[in-house]
């Protein structure tokens, strides 16, 4: 019996698995570094999350986060790590577009591109 295909079979799956693992590990490492810095500087301050105020603008947008991480702000570095984490599935989808295109599976290229567009729209515009 012929096996119904998974795209690219095992090589594709291996690359995909490694991509996800690398993304999460990198994100966790950056968050850990930022977290250490943040706790070292502000660890003794009490936390206050009872009332929702929303984050300052430099922790909300990609340029703002990069800027504040560059300034070695602990919170900025953590946020950069979280951004890397959010980018991991996005990278996975981007990679899938290429893999389906290599298989000439155009139906799935369309599906994957639409999903990618939704993700990019969400991250850049915040759904407004």
């Amino acid at each position: 019996m012929a096996r119904p295909t998974q795209p690219g079979q095992s090589r594709f799956q291996n690359v995909l698995g490694n991509l996800l693992r690398a993304g999460v590990s990198l994100a966790a490492a950056v968050v850990l570094i930022g977290g250490g810095l943040y706790l070292f500087r502000h660890g003794d301050e009490p936390f206050a999350y009872e009332i929702f105020r929303g984050e300052p603008t430099d922790l909300r947008s990609i340029p703002g986060i990069i800027h504040s991480a560059w300034a070695l702000s602990g919170r900025g570095i953590i946020q950069l790590g979280l951004l890397l984490l959010i980018a991991t599935p996005v990278a996975r989808v981007m990679f899938s577009v290429g893999a389906f295109a290599a298989e000439k599976d155009w139906k799935y290229v369309v599906v994957t591109v639409i999903v990618l567009a939704v993700l990019i729209y969400s991250i850049l515009s915040g759904g407004v």
Partner: peptide
């Protein structure tokens, strides 16, 4: 992961993701 990333973008832009809280939780 992909599903959550779609809403995480909105959350990030609206200031719902606080690094001080998300760090220990994550």
């Amino acid at each position: 992961g992909v599903t959550a990333a779609a809403s995480a973008g909105v959350y990030l832009n609206r200031g719902y993701i606080d690094p001080g809280l998300a760090m220990p939780v994550m």
